[in-house]
Each structure stands twice: as C-alpha cells, then as structure tokens.
Design a protein around this nucleic acid. Structure first.
Length: 663
RNA sequence: AGGGGAGUAGCUCAAUCGGAUAGAGCAACGGUUUUCUAAACCGUAGGUUGUGGGUUCGAGUCCCGCCUUCCCUGCCA
C-alpha cells in the first residue's frame, strides 16, 4: 500500500465511523474530512475539528465528538479515536503508517511528491533584464523566484516553458551606447578584463553622471538651487502630514504642489534642451531607422551584456527554453495597435498618436477596474515609435502564436501591477480569447535599510559581487574548521553550493508578495564571530539553506561511516518513538507542500516545509542513535534517514539548490 | 486625492478554509562534544497580533473607520 491509498482509506474509515454514529442523518463524504495536527503528539496523530459537521448532523460539535468516540471500532489503520472538546483526535497504526511512508518514498525516489500529469501547458516569463547594466539583488529575487516557481509547476504536473524577455531596445540602451561612443576609447570587456554586463553598466552610470553634471550646471546658470528645492519639498511633505488645521493643510498642499511643479518644469525644460539627452534621443531615432552604424554598436554591446548575463544565469542555475527580444517583438505590437485603431477599438488622436481609453479598459475587465477608472493609456507615440506596453502586447501575442497555452505567467515586481492589468485588458479588447489566462505573478520590492535599490545611484547590491563575497565567507568557514573533511579541490564547489543555498533560501523564505529587507553590512562580516556578524541578513546558521544542506550531509555521513545501504525490509515497529513518528508525519506531508506551493505560485511553502523537516530530523538525531548495536534498530533508522535525505533532495531541487554530501 | 499591498517578540519572518495554549530563526542568558560532522542540540526569557468598532460557538485571519508605511496613478522601463 502506498501513501495516497493509505490516506484515502483512512478518510473513508473515519467517515464510516462518523456515519455509523449518526445513522439517522445524511452521510458525510470523505472529502469533508479535514485533518489537522493536535497541539502535541501525545494527543493523537491527526485531529478533526467537528464544527463543520454541526449543521449536517444537527448537533453541537462537542456532542458530535463524544458520539463519534463512543461508537468507534478499532481497525488495522486506526487504533483509537478520542474526543477532546469539539475535536476528535485520531491515533493511527504507527507500524503500518511507518511502513507505508518509507516504502512510498523508497519506491518513488526522485518522483516522491510529484503531482499527476495535468496535460496543460504553462509559459512562465521571468528575469526580463535590461541590457544596459548588470543584475542586482532585485533581479536575483526575480530570477530565483521565477526558476523555483517553474520547477515547482513542472513537478506538480504542468508542462512548463520558461522564457526570458530581454529588454534590449529603447532610450535606456542608447544611453550606455552613447556614453561608450563618446568616452569608451575603443575599450572592450576583454581589453580591461571585465565581465560584459559590468563593462556596459559602467557606461550607463557614466552617462547618468554626465547628464547630472549638465543639469547642475544648467540649474546654476538659471540660478535655481535644486538641493534647496528638494529639502523644501521634503519639509512641506512633513508639514502636510503633521498639520491638523484643514484650511492650513490645504494651503500647504498647494504650496507643495507648486514647488513640485517647478522642479518638474525645470527637469522637462532641461531634458528638452540637453545636448547629451538630445544625442541619446537622436541615437534612438537612428536605431529605429536601422542606421547601420548604430545597429552595429548596439549588436556589439548587447552581445557583451548577454555574455555576462549567461555567465550569471549559469552560476545561479537559471534556465530558459526560449529568449524573446523586445527588438524583435515591438513591431508586432505596433501592428496590432494600428489594427486596433483601424477597427476603432483604440482612439487615434489628431497628432496620430494611438490611445486606449480608460473607459474601454474598464468595460473589458470590470472586475479588475471595479473600484476606480484607469486613465487613458498611450499605445503608440505621434512619431510612430512604440512605448513599453507596445512591445508587451507584441510579445504576449507572439507567445500564444508559438504555443497554445493554458496559462501565461509573468514574474515581475509589484510596481508593474497596473501595467499588467492594463496589458491583459488591452489583449481582451483586441479579442484574444486567451487574455484571461494571463497572470501577473507579482512580488515585493527588495529594500536596503536606507531605502530603495537604485542602479544609477550608489545604493545597489551587485548580484555577482554578492555571490562572490558569500562564497569567500564559506571558504573561510570551511578552512577554519578542522572537523570538516573535504578534498582541497572540492572546496570551491561546495562553497558555491552553500553560498547559493544561503542566498536562495533567504530570498525564497518570505512570502512572495512581501517586501524584503536586506542589510548588506550585517551580511558581509558574518563569519568573524562578532555579534554584529551573527545577526547577518544572509547567515549560514539557523533557518538557512545551509542548515538544510547540513541535515542532508549528516545523513550522508552516517551512511559513509557505517558503509551501509538502506533497505525497506525492516521492522517498522521500531520507528514508534515520538521523534521518529514526527519525522515520518512530515515526510508524508511533502506532496501537500508541493501542491500548496504550486497552487499559490509560492516557493516559500517548500522552504518552510524543508526547514521544519530538517528541524525534526535533528531532533530525532539528538535523541536516537542511528548506528546502534542492535542490527534491527540500525536498519530501521537508516531507512528513516534515507527517506528524509530523499525528500530533502527532492525539495531542494525544486528551489534550485544543490545538496553536498560533505560540508 | 484615488487604487493596491503591508503593520505579529528587540530584529528578520511564519501561522492551511476562520479552529485547541500565536510559532521559528537571529540577538540575550544558561547548558551539551572520549558516542553517527557543534553550520548542530537542549533550556530560560521575550506578545493587549498598529488602533477603535463589528460579524460568530470561535478572529492575527472576514467587514467598516482611523493611524503608520511601501508601491502605482509616465509619451520611463
């Protein structure tokens, strides 16, 4: 008997017991049985709350529980049912349960926890980088989350297509191109030994610095003190917040708005007169007109960046079945927008720009836009050049042309929620029946103690550097600890596995939609043993990836030392202790954790599951000796360890983490 | 101003469909190594779940108000 069958049988049996106790009313179906865990394991293996039955059975929950317990007849599965208040606590046959769990895991191995084939295809877009700068911590959250969700959906039984939409076109790309052209002196990543994405990113920052210089000069010439205005705005915001008097508040608001307007006006004025920005725009125009020289530079620099990205993806274990490039898809979007204007579902203004009205967005998706009316949205500029949403229209249409999809997912940060609501509604307006199968998988921002991550300012945490630093810390820990027995040439590999697991679990272990706080100062000095280090944002002890890996490595160590293998032909009655049963219960829960993660697009169900499992493993480990003089005991416990190792392996794989055998 | 999140222990976070005494980790304090790796284990302490109402057998969870905070409301991406 396998686990699934056991659970079904258990529910049926319990159901029969309930129905026997209440023969005069309509039967309860096994699906209505909801297992939960009693507050502690002495009270039983499963708990069933009787509140939901109260209506059908026309009795108080407490009375229902007592009646069920009174009418209970023991079976091979269930040994006891005990009423405690409105709860029924179920004691199961531990020997049988242990055997069922162990045999199931040992039989299914890598497939333990796998969901049934759904015969449905899901496309998941994630990463979606801009090719003008290297990846930072915010991108890491996206990449690691996206990859984990893709793995989980695949394991749950979907056919999953992982795609990356590369934002390789637009004014931001031209900025780094222009800076390189002006100040690059023909350098290449090779010539200065830099990773391609970092190399290009340098010029993106350079452009921004030069533009800022120009702006400061311009402000000085016009005798405008931008700094003063900024502090003024800050002060006004504070005053507005603290102001109690309504009339005064209104006045302050007006003043604030005026000040903000003056800054905005200055900025707009500056940009439209800026030589540097004008050059970038001119370059964009040239790009759109297929200027050979600009296109050649664009190709060269994009290739550098993509080389760098591929290296980082390889390191992180991010994989893609297909790359879409905005430069290939924006014209398809343009075409559909123009057709929409022709059909009359979009509005063409006198200046030839094309718009979708807020009204029609609302009409198309009245559920999403129930509580507010969106503003009209520009789809194509007057000069015919496309905006951000234009290419997404094209890309999404192309995705559905390439493959018939049952779900089309976008792993993108929460700041783009309105963008995707608008996009999906537009696709509906364009009469694509699949528009409702599109879903934005939104996730929270990554923040530093000082605020937002900003690529152009100094406040960024570079992805490559972060990983490198963490690896070095692990190497230091390994070298400092004499007890760790790893071949010299393996240290780098193991350090990489551990550093990445620490990073990934840190990013995946909080709810997807929640913002994430990262304190780099605490993270970096974490191996020196000082107290500041121990509170590090990405630690290697406690609830971490390495903790789970350590549990796995310890099990490997046991098998290695005992030169043993596991067999399912053991005396399952040995595994009766509280600790052993807790572990096996947890092992049995793995398929449910996978289902929860898949159905909510939330890997954190897996991370919390694995941490719980590992804690129970160590708890067991602390109380019971695996390699014991008694051969029967040894065999049974070895099997238990083997089963746990298998589940850790399966779960960690879903999260994109390796499990080293020594650490 | 409007729309959407969030607010739980000193810090970072959990908490199945609304269910039994709100849990972990870190930080603090105390203990564990001649026994399978101390990246571990055990113990102590730490809470009016932002706030005020409501719904009911029962609310961190659902509804309404308020406070705080983040995001969005670009011819940026």
């Amino acid at each position: 008997m396998l686990l699934q069958e056991f659970t079904n049988k258990l529910k049926t049996e319990i159901c029969q017991n309930i129905n026997n106790a209440f023969s005069d009313v309509e039967d309860i179906s096994p699906d209505a049985i909801q297992f939960s865990a009693p507050p502690n394991s002495d009270m039983g293996d499963y708990a069933i709350a009787c509140f939901p039955f109260a209506k059908a059975l026309k009795k108080a929950p407490v009375a229902i529980a007592t009646d069920i317990a009174a009418n209970f007849t023991p079976s091979s599965l269930v040994s006891k049912m005990q009423a405690v208040g409105p709860y029924i606590n179920v004691f199961i046959n531990k020997t049988l349960f242990s055997e069922v769990v162990c045999r199931t895991v040992m039989k299914e191995e890598k497939d333990y926890g796998r969901g049934e084939k759904k015969n449905k295809t899901v496309m998941i877009e994630y990463s979606s980088p801009n090719t003008n700068k290297p990846l930072h911590l915010g991108h890491l959250r996206n990449n690691i989350l996206g990859m984990a969700i893709a793995n989980i959906l695949d394991f749950y039984g979907y056919e999953v297509i992982k795609v990356n939409l590369v934002n390789d076109r637009g004014i931001h790309i031209c900025k780094s191109m222009l800076a390189y052209e002006k100040w690059g002196n023909g350098e290449t990543p090779e010539s200065c030994g830099e990773k391609g994405d970092h190399f290009v990113g340098k010029y993106y920052v350079l452009f921004d610095n030069k533009l800022e210089e120009e702006k400061q000069q311009c402000a000085k010439d016009q005798k405008i003190d931008l700094e003063k205005l900024a502090t003024e705005i800050g002060d006004l915001k504070k005053q507005v917040r603290n102001c109690k008097d309504a009339a005064q508040k209104k006045e302050l608001r007006k003043k604030l708005k005026d000040t903000e307007k003056s800054v905005e006006d200055f900025n707009n004025d500056f940009l439209s007169n800026s030589k540097l920005y004008g050059d970038a725009l001119a370059m964009l125009k040239k790009w759109e007109n297929n200027d050979a020289e600009v296109r050649a530079l664009w190709k060269k620099m994009n290739a550098w960046v993509m080389d760098g990205f591929h290296e980082t993806y390889g390191k992180l274990g991010c994989e893609f079945d297909k790359f879409y490039f905005e430069s290939d898809t924006f014209s398809l979007g343009k075409k559909h927008v123009e057709e929409g204007a022709q059909k009359g579902v979009f509005a063409k203004h006198d200046d030839n720009s094309i718009w979708v009205s807020g009204e029609s967005l609302k009409k198309q998706d009245s559920k999403t836009f129930k509580k507010f009316s969106p503003k009209d949205k520009l789809l194509l500029r007057a000069d015919g050049t496309s905006v951000y949403i234009t290419q997404d229209i094209g890309t999404t249409i192309l995705k559905h042309k390439d493959k018939e999809l049952d779900q089309c997912l976008f792993v993108v940060g929460e700041e783009q929620e309105l963008h995707f609501k608008t996009l999906f509604s537009i696709l509906g307006i364009l009469d694509f029946s699949w528009w409702e199968k599109c879903r934005h998988i939104s996730y929270g921002m990554v923040n530093l103690p000082e605020g937002k991550l900003k690529s152009r300012k100094g406040t960024r945490v570079d992805a490559d550097e972060l990983v490198k630093e963490m690896e070095q810390r692990v190497v230091d820990i390994i070298t400092a600890n004499e007890k760790i027995d790893i071949e010299e040439d393996q240290i780098a590999n193991v350090a990489e596995d551990i550093a990445l697991a620490a990073l990934k679990l840190f990013l995946l272990n909080i709810s997807r939609e929640k913002a994430l706080l990262f304190d780099p100062h605490k993270a970096i000095s974490s191996d020196s043993g000082d107290s500041a280090g121990k509170s590090g944002a990405i630690a290697f002890t406690g609830d971490t990836g390495p903790y789970i890996q350590y549990g796995y490595a310890r099990i490997c160590g046991i098998f290695r030392n005992a030169n043993a293998t596991a067999t399912t032909e053991v005396d399952y009655a040995i595994l009766h202790s509280k600790e052993e049963q807790a572990v096996l219960q947890k092992v049995a829960d793995f398929p449910q954790a996978v289902a929860n993660a898949a159905e909510n697009d939330s890997p954190h169900f897996i991370t919390t599951y694995l941490l719980d499992l590992t804690k129970l493993l160590f708890k067991f480990y602390g109380v019971h000796q695996v390699i014991s003089d008694d051969e029967e005991t040894k065999q049974a416990r070895l099997l238990l360890c083997k089963v746990v190792a298998q589940v850790i392996h399966n779960g960690m794989k879903l999260l994109g983490m390796n499990v080293p055998e020594r650490m």
